[in-house]
Amino acid sequence: MRRIISVLMENAPGALSRIVGVFSQRGFNVDSLCVAPTDDESLSRLTIITQGDDKVIEQITKQVNKLIDVLKIAELTEGPHIERELMLIKVGNKTELSRAEVKRNVDIFRARILDVNANNYTIEITGTSDKLCAFEDVMSQCGDIIESARTGVCGLARGDKALRP
């Protein structure tokens, strides 16, 4: 089962490598990983997408929580939550028809064209991972995908729940 795990940790050198180490040492999966400082710059927030049954997830959360740099950890998929991912995608389109198709779908998906060239568009899209995948599919039908980059998922719990020190 797909799980989103959110970690609040010290924004300290080496902290990230320790977390990644827990995953590789103990044979846990990482599907995506997204990390950046929070509003409090001394802290980083890390979101990991992983797979596993309840027992595996329990071990992951406990082992990560055990790291000295980690303040808090929560599994977002346990409750109502919001998740978003950003993708930049460069789509080649040599024909006028293809360009029109791409533009039409950009509107439908509420994506944005960031860069326009003679032969390609670079598009930004945010949404759930599923939406990004769907958009990628559509783009591959109306043009040629040249390259793409995704941030990995980040998320927050809905309502009053929060991960704070």
């Binding site: 050198p13 080496g14 490598s17 320790r18 180490g21 040492q25 790291l67 000295i68």
Partner: peptide, 14 residues
């Protein structure tokens, strides 16, 4: 050293 010992320490400081 911090890297090579990482899996076998409780914590480390550089």
């Amino acid at each position: 050293m911090v890297g090579i010992s990482r899996p076998v320490v409780k914590h480390s400081f550089l």
